[in-house]
Design a protein around this nucleic acid. Structure first.
Lengths: 339, 339
DNA sequence: CTTGGCAGTCGGAGCGGCTGAGTGCCAATC
DNA sequence: GATTGGCACTCAGCCGCTCCGACTGCCAAG
């Protein structure tokens, strides 16, 4: 009994359904793929596959479509890697290399991913807790106002305006700047609070309140906020998937864009190269039951800085999407490391 | 002959058609509006309006729909201002007040506008040529690498990494920083090139190349690039407008997002409060012939810093859209001024 | 100028029959 | 035992039909 052939049939069904979005029947299958057997045989195989829950028939006289379980098997065992074309590789390289700063890298990346996959792409800004302080700069703007610029080793730059209770002079600024930098330069963000806790006490009583404001502002920038920034692109691709699909997915994306939802959608940032595919009902959110998410960590060495990925209908082109997501992730990682 | 009534009929037709998206007939009109005349009279009026090109009948036995010319008249003379609800005002205020930096202001603004109008919103980053330098900061990162942070009075912060040919020391950095700032602080961006032209010559021969690199980087940030940044939100709203509409408008938006297209779509930034409505065929782009654009300048005092606006189908709710666009523009202007 | 009446138009909804793709089962064959 | 061709059966979707009703334009009367 050729168990192999049944898998080949499943693969063919998935591929055809993804391509045509229409239920695929036994005859069409043998026509389009070299299975070497007759439609009748394929029908028998399909009956077994249906029995086992990998495919289903929308109604009696129609072909079969893959179930979530079918896609799962396909992704895990059947999907052959689809290498990107040379043109695509070049596009990724040239498009991302032109980026001038982190914001630009993020925006270009997410847009690129949306274009490559024709789906909705998401990217999470590099996590702060995992990155380190490269420098803290204080720029006096008036006698009671300064701008704090915090530069992370990922290239992420945070700015914060702050107002002090009392006027300060140039000397005060350089002193605080020096103290601050010697305390936090090179430190991981997570360690910063401990390092600056004692800082105000090394200043004379009179200027402590101002120092405290500065420290507080720094902490505010450093502490991981629940609303990690997320960029989103390609929502217009939703139109291709039909109104029903849009209706169910849109609220989720809007919530995401609002940063209200934590990113368990993309999953926890683990190691780069660990790509996760979540199919249909496997998603925790009810309204994503017709949706698959392909996500991967990026940046960092051993453990990823953050996640990026793609959201699309369960009947997506998994090999292509996976290839794109992986390639983009690698490239962004390289760029951030160089930056 | 009550010319007034004919206009009232036109207004009613526009309002009903916008509300229902279906051709409106004479009977429905008198039912839904207090016109004080019979359907027959309205029919006569409609015949005249059609004669004059303000409305058209898609086919014999259907009602009328407004033409572009009809919308134009409506917008210019008939649209009564629709004040925003208190809730909407509060939403705008609280949503925008929470923004932490310029990027955040831009993102929140465009998202807000998309939500208020249920259409596709666009915003252009504040133009650099019109804004002034608040401060230039140089942050040494290694012996041959520094980060330049350029702060504009609009709150826009540009960062550029730069590598020098030869190593530099701390003293060199402070000197250049001081010279640079005394040359450009408070200057309009457009004037910066002239102010820094002579800068390298005031340094000893040996360090001039490094100064030149720094100056070049500064100029790069200051010179208006053709790819002015644009943010776009609410493309998912396109699904509501139907597939045909999407097909025609989508390419334009994609081009926009790619920053390939100059912003003649939003029009030249003029003075704030000068709101422009471009209806259907009035648009220069062929593919926008079923599209209207409502745009306005924002920020700045006498002349606007940049444009923001909304793109939607010609049968949009003009009074509501205009009110939202105007309100958001005012609010962003205020925030940028405070920032 | 306004109005009610009336004939005429025509898009779209509703209905029913037909078609063809697709299935499951079975008996014959390799 | 696996494979195949044949056959009866099912049913979604298309096509064409009719019918309905929402309109309009015109006209004669108020």
């Amino acid at each position: 009994m050729t168990d192999d052939r049944r898998l080949a049939v499943l693969r063919a069904i998935v591929e055809d359904f993804v391509a045509t979005r229409e239920p695929v029947g036994s005859k069409a299958l043998v026509d389009r793929h070299q299975l070497g057997v007759s439609p009748a045989t394929v029908r028998n195989d399909m009956a077994v596959l249906e029995e086992e829950g990998y495919i289903a028939a929308p109604h009696t006289s129609a072909g079969r479509i893959p179930t979530d379980k079918g896609y799962r098997l396909f992704v895990d065992r059947l999907a052959s890697v689809k290498p990107l074309s040379a043109a695509e590789r070049r596009a990724i390289a040239s498009f991302l290399d032109d980026a001038v700063d982190l914001d630009d890298v993020m925006q270009r990346t997410v847009r690129l991913l949306a274009q490559l996959t024709h789906q909705v792409a998401l990217i999470q800004y590099p996590s702060l807790t995992r990155s380190a302080v490269r420098h803290v700069e204080l720029v006096p703007l008036s006698s009671t106002r300064m701008l704090m610029v915090l530069i992370a080793d990922t290239g992420r730059v945070e700015q914060r305006m702050l107002d002090t209770a009392t006027a300060f002079d140039e000397q005060f600024v350089s002193e605080v700047r020096a103290h601050l930098n010697s305390a936090v330069d090179g430190q991981r963000f997570a360690d910063v609070p401990a390092r600056v806790a004692e800082l105000p006490s090394s200043f004379p009583e009179s200027s402590r309140p101002n120092v405290a404001v500065i420290v507080a502002t720094l902490l505010e920038s450093v502490i991981e906020r629940p609303d990690e920034r997320i960029l989103l692109s390609g929502t217009a691709n939703l139109t291709k998937f039909g109104a029903d699909f849009t209706r169910s997915v849109l609220p989720v994306l809007e919530a995401l864009e609002e940063h209200v939802v934590l990113l368990n959608l993309l999953g926890q940032a683990t190691s780069p190269d660990t790509l996760t595919v979540t199919i249909g009902h496997e998603n925790s959110l009810e309204s994503l039951s017709a949706t698959s998410v392909v996500s991967i960590g990026y940046g960092g060495g051993g453990d990823a800085l953050a996640q990026l990925g793609v959201v699309g209908p369960t009947h997506m082109d998994y090999p292509g999407t996976i290839a794109s997501v992986r390639a983009v992730s690698r490239y962004v990682g390289r760029i951030l490391a160089d930056g």
